[in-house]
Amino acid sequence: MSKMEVYLVASAAHYVNGKYVSNLECLSNRGDPVAVAGHLYPEVLKRFWFNTRGAGMLYNDCIDQVRRRHGVINGSNYLIPIQKGAFSGSKLVTSYLSKKPKEESASETSELLP
């Protein structure tokens, strides 16, 4: 679990706890109604929006990555902007999505072959 990383895009989750993961990020656009219903719901009101178990909304240990853009979750509002440098503070972007895939050479794959 110490190596698990979780990335939520436009999260509408009620309970998010990063206590047992190495990295938890929430990427959202301010004008996205899905994100506004969850991740971007006003902090002072989160404890009043109860789930089916009667618990209020909780986001613990989450690194917020928020853009001041409108748009719902789809390629043109999240994936394409990420390719162009949006959410540049996110580990998801800097460590995984912005890297070009390296070419596999015979020496790298030969260990995997019987």
Rank of each mutant, 00 (worst) to 15 (best):
L45F: 05
L45M: 13
L45S: 09
L45T: 09
K46M: 02
F48C: 15
F48T: 15
F48H: 15
F48E: 15
W49C: 11
W49R: 15
F50I: 11
F50H: 14
N51Y: 02
N51C: 04
R53W: 05
A55Y: 09
M57S: 09
M57G: 07
L58M: 13
N60W: 08
N60D: 13
D61S: 10
C62A: 03
D64R: 05
D64C: 08
Q65K: 11
V66P: 03
V66G: 01
R67S: 07
R67V: 12
R68K: 13
R68C: 06
R69D: 13
H70F: 08
H70C: 10
H70K: 14
V72M: 07
V72P: 10
I73L: 09
I73E: 13
I73Q: 12
N74Q: 10
N74Y: 05
G75N: 03
N77A: 00
N77C: 00
L79G: 09
I80V: 11
I82R: 02
I82L: 02
Q83V: 06
Q83M: 07
Q83N: 08
K84N: 12
K84H: 10
K84P: 14
K84A: 06
A86F: 04
F87K: 03
F87C: 05
S88R: 12
S88E: 10
S88D: 09
G89Y: 03
G89A: 02
S90D: 09
S90H: 04
S90E: 09
S90I: 10
L92C: 00
L92K: 00
L92V: 01
L92H: 00
V93R: 04
T94Q: 13
S95M: 10
Y96R: 15
L97C: 02
L97Y: 01
S98Q: 08
S98E: 08
K99P: 07
